[in-house]
Each structure stands twice: as structure tokens, then as C-alpha cells.
């Protein structure tokens, strides 16, 4: 489902091949900056590749990406972050040799143009919003999985994003931890931050997503209201013939 967006993302005809493997096949996608969009699909569907393309992690083989009507196709991840599009990683990538505060401060200092005191404040706010106050001085290498995921989120939030790209951030968390995470993301929604969230744990995703996209084999096979997408026969088939719980 694509339509021109004056305030948001518009991706047109995205193609990405890794060698002979076609991972994104003419993807067309758009979202308003205040939307919460969930992306589901089986492993290898191209979800993370699409997120990486939107974040500027690599150059596309074909297609264009507009952010607020500005062409950002050629812009690298660093530049897109400065424009307000930032991602978290499926496998957390902390700066191991630095403390949690220092990790987040890097993002607050470089993600947005801010003086030192403002960067400190953004850092503390992001740490608090992510529930990491108790480990602010801990070395990132000593963190458990939940805190590593939270650190990914805190670092992204410190850049003052307009659109946040979340990649399986609830994966590996317990039910209680997922509830905490959803509360945090709902708070971000209240602040007007747009979200694209890839997640396998669909019932967690549906607590936030207002719109759902299903991908399979590098293509978008369904896009729309979440319950309608989940009952789409193509989507059910993509999930090995079963319904999605």
C-alpha cells in the first residue's frame, strides 16, 4: 500500500540482491511519521533487509526512498539517523567497552545536533525511558539479554528519532519483560514517534501496531488492518499453513 506522504517514508520499487539471491523484489511501501506499522513474515522473508534498507545500512540495487519528500536513497545510515530515522538491531550490538551511559551518550551526541548539556539530558531521559537507571554505570559487555535489548532501544531513543525501526526487539524476552517493553513502546507512541516493528511474537506486536504488513520471499503479500492481514489466506499459507497465534 503506497501513497504520497509529505510527512513520513515512501519506498518505491526497492530491489536488493545478495549474489544470485533476490532478497527484496520491487517492494513498495509507505508510512506516515505518526504511524505504528508491524511487519511479520517467515524467516528469510526479507523483513530485516527491508529495515536495513530503510535505515541506510547498504545501497539498494534499485529503487528510491523518500523521507518527508526528501530523497534519501543515497544517504548512509549516519545521515538518515541525523534526519530522524534510526534502527535497533535484531542481535544487539552494544559498545562493549563502554558503560551504558557512554553507549547512549554517543547516540545523543551524534544522532542529533545538541550541545553537551542537552546531550546529557537526552541520554538520561533515554536511559530512564528504557528502564536502565540501575545499570547506567555498568560496562555493556556485562549486560544480560534484556538489558542489551533495552540498550539498543535507549541508544536509538537518544537520537531523538522521528521514525524508529525496531528489529525483533521482543525476541528472547520473557512474558513479563515483553510487557515492560510494550509499555515503553506505547510511551513512545504517546510522544508521537512513528514505529516500524518487525516481530515474530505477534500478540506483543499487535498491542502497538495499527497496521500490519506481511512479507514472504522478498515481497509484501499483505498490508492493512492487523486482523484482516492475519486472516488473509496468503498470509496463513506463508506461515506453513497455520493460523497466527
Amino acid at each position: 500500500m503506497t501513497h504520497a506522504v509529505s510527512n513520513g517514508l515512501l519506498a518505491s520499487d526497492l530491489v536488493k540482491n545478495f549474489g544470485s539471491v533476490s532478497v527484496l523484489k520491487n517492494i513498495n511501501f509507505s508510512m506516515n511519521a505518526d504511524e505504528a506499522v508491524g511487519i511479520v513474515g517467515p524467516n528469510g522473508a526479507g523483513k530485516t533487509t527491508l529495515l536495513s534498507a530503510l535505515a541506510g545500512a547498504f545501497q539498494l540495487d534499485q529503487g528510491s526512498i523518500l523521507l518527508n519528500n526528501q530523497d534519501v536513497t543515497e544517504k548512509c545510515a549516519s545521515a538518515r539517523c541525523n534526519l530522524g530515522v534510526v534502527r535497533t538491531h535484531q542481535i544487539p550490538k552494544p559498545f562493549d567497552g563502554m558503560t551504558v551511559f557512554e553507549n547512549v551518550l554517543v547516540a545523543a551526541s551524534y544522532g542529533v545536533d545538541a550541545d553537551k548539556q542537552t546531550a546529557y539530558q537526552h541520554t538520561l531521559n533515554a536511559i530512564q525511558l528504557s528502564g536502565m537507571e540501575h545499570v547506567a554505570n555498568r560496562q555493556a559487555e556485562s549486560l544480560g539479554l534484556l538489558d542489551r535489548k533495552r540498550l539498543e532501544l535507549a541508544r536509538a531513543l537518544a537520537t531523538q528519532p522521528k521514525i524508529l525501526l525496531l528489529d525483533e526487539i521482543a525476541g528472547g524476552l520473557t512474558e513479563a519483560e515483553s510487557v515492560q517493553l510494550v509499555d515503553t513502546i506505547k510511551e513512545l507512541r504517546r510522544q508521537g514517534i512513528g514505529i516500524i516493528w518487525i516481530e515474530h511474537i505477534v500478540h506483543v506486536l499487535l498491542q502497538v501496531a495499527e497496521r500490519l504488513i506481511c512479507m514472504d520471499s522478498g515481497e509484501i503479500i499483505a498490508d492493512g488492518e492487523p486482523q484482516a492481514v492475519l486472516s488473509n489466506p496468503q498470509v496463513v499459507k506463508a506461515y506453513l499453513g497455520g493460523g497466527i497465534e
Binding site: 549516519s78 557512554e102 553507549n103 554517543v106 551526541s109
Partner: peptide, 19 residues
């Protein structure tokens, strides 16, 4: 801080605005 972030994970550093 950016120097140390790049040391630990260049991809992650780039994703939060470091050049």
C-alpha cells in the same frame, strides 16, 4: 566516545549518527 564506539561496533556506531 565515537572512537571507542567504532572500535566496539562500527555498524552500530554508524546507525546512531557517527561518521
Amino acid at each position: 566516545s565515537a572512537i571507542q564506539a567504532i572500535r566496539d561496533n562500527e555498524e552500530a556506531a554508524t546507525s546512531v549518527g557517527v561518521k
